[in-house]
Amino acid sequence: MVTAAIPRPLRRPRSVIPGFGITLGLTLTWLSVIVLLPLSALFIKTSEITLERFIAIVTSTRTLHALQVSFGLSLAAACVNLVFGVIVVWALVRYDFPFRRVVDAIIDIPFALPTAVAGIALTSLYAENGWVGSLLAPLGIKVAFTELGILVALIFIGLPFVVRTVQPVLADLDAELEEASASLGASRGQTVWRVVLPSVIPALLTGFALAFARAVGEYGSVIFIAGNLPGQTEIAPLLIVIRLEEFRYADATAIATVMLLASFVLLLVINRLQRWSETRSART
């Protein structure tokens, strides 16, 4: 039987490495000043609006439409990126072709290129007299200044999220899994569909959610190509800016609160997905 010796409390350092108190203190202070305090200002300002007013703002036709455009097109862009992201990842990880490393590097351009630059570049490309726009115009397809234009911008900024999330998982996938599948008589298609894809599904969903979350809040690359017609091609972040410029702070605050809450939910979902992805891709 273990006799529980009452531990004599010792005033000793908890670790041999110094600096815990001060570094954690500074971290929390800085985090509060730059991130938490400003974000809480949003909630304080929102609490000053009456509930009826809040609901009236959020459910007004213009707001609803802007939210619908932002969320709907973000979802569509994330879906496009999911499909083409997998194709790009597959080509990069599994095949060799000329300039593969260069192609791999340019995937990150949407991360590195300022959104305003991307916005004007996409607009000039897809405008009716642009390189791509002039090819599509004879077919009756208008991209710039329509919903399609917004979609193009959101595809642009979301692609690297899908690629960079799925790429390492597919690259680390044990080749023996596929060999085992083949040795058990599976066709190549069956192996890809039943062995490879299920292994990367958590990563795929994570990338999808990341691309979606980024697109919902996107502003810079969209406003140039969007046309910004209220009720048609006006995204929610733009409506916040417009309300702010009209000094309608309550409206701006209410819409921003909805956006921020959506971000929190997405963050939660992404965290869960990432954890799932990590446990799934952990080697056994």
Binding site: P38, K45, G217, Y219, L238, L244, L260, I270
Partner: peptide, 14 residues
């Protein structure tokens, strides 16, 4: 995960 526009707005509100 916060929209840049919201990030700017919170400082205006402060």
């Amino acid at each position: 995960s916060v929209s840049p526009v919201v990030a700017g707005l919170v400082y205006v509100l402060l």
